[in-house]
Design a protein around this nucleic acid. Structure first.
Length: 239
RNA sequence: AUUGUUCUUAGGAGC
């Protein structure tokens, strides 16, 4: 069963969801029943491809096979409905979870924050018994996407426990609001930049047509031994 | 190391 799951995951990671589903079917034909490891793999594939009817089918399959009470299965279903922008179903799953760990709380927080339910997100963030830096990051990027630059900044400043993703989200929030000088100021203060930090800054400058700054950034990138990745390339190509 | 949460580009998918 382990190797079936591994095979399905590998096929999906290679971008071949159909192949993964075929494997899923043949494993059952050979008498292997999917377990609590199998479902999250398939559910996540349905999420990122927006395969809505597959998602529903998988959900009912988890119920029929008795795996719907597994924490990982539940969390992946929650996130699946969130990615389908179906916050009500996401909440329904969340509400029915008897045990919720921090990932479950963060997943529900993200369901609200990423789908524009800013009030609900803020309330959940206040009341959540389990929080970490990811919860903060979810809130910052939620505010950013909602065009609430000031709220994002206030939260960012209020919480000293930040990681690189927090900085990246805040830089992104600045770019969205058109505050490129602030974005650059933060960028220069990031303690540990990663490739996303660079890409966020590059695409911010590209969107605001600050091409000289983009070139400077590329030089600085080389000086600091970062290599452009496929995201860097496609953001330049798109501009 | 068989599974679930947050940050950047494009595309795809849906509305």
């Amino acid at each position: 069963l382990k190797s079936w799951n591994k095979a399905i995951k590998k096929q999906i990671q290679e971008g071949n969801v159909n192949r993964g589903l075929t494997t899923f079917v043949s494993m059952q034909e050979k008498g292997f029943h999917p377990d609590n490891f199998t479902f999250p793999i398939l559910i996540e594939a349905a999420s990122c491809r927006s395969l809505i009817s597959l998602g529903y089918a998988l959900h009912s399959h988890t119920i029929k096979s008795g795996y719907c009470d597994d924490l990982y299965v539940q969390t992946s279903l929650l996130n699946m409905y969130s990615s389908f922008e179906n916050v009500h179903h996401a909440y329904k799953v969340f509400k029915q979870m008897p045990v919720k760990d921090i990932i479950a709380w963060n997943s529900m927080l993200d369901a609200y924050a990423s789908n524009g339910y800013t009030k609900e997100a803020a309330m959940l963030f206040e009341s959540a018994p389990l929080k970490d830096v990811t919860s903060l990051n979810i809130m910052i990027s939620g505010h950013a996407k909602a065009g609430q630059f000031q709220l994002a900044l206030a939260l960012f400043n209020a919480v000293p426990a930040r990681d690189t993703a927090s900085w990246n989200s805040m830089i992104f929030a600045c770019s969205l609001a058109g505050h490129m000088e602030e974005a650059r100021r933060l960028f220069d203060k990031v303690p540990k930049k990663n490739i996303v930090t660079w890409n966020t800054m590059v695409s911010g400058f590209l969107k605001t047509e600050l091409y000289v700054e983009v070139l400077e950034l590329f030089n600085q990138m080389r000086a600091e031994n970062f290599k452009p990745d496929h995201v860097t390339i496609s953001s330049v190509l798109a501009a």
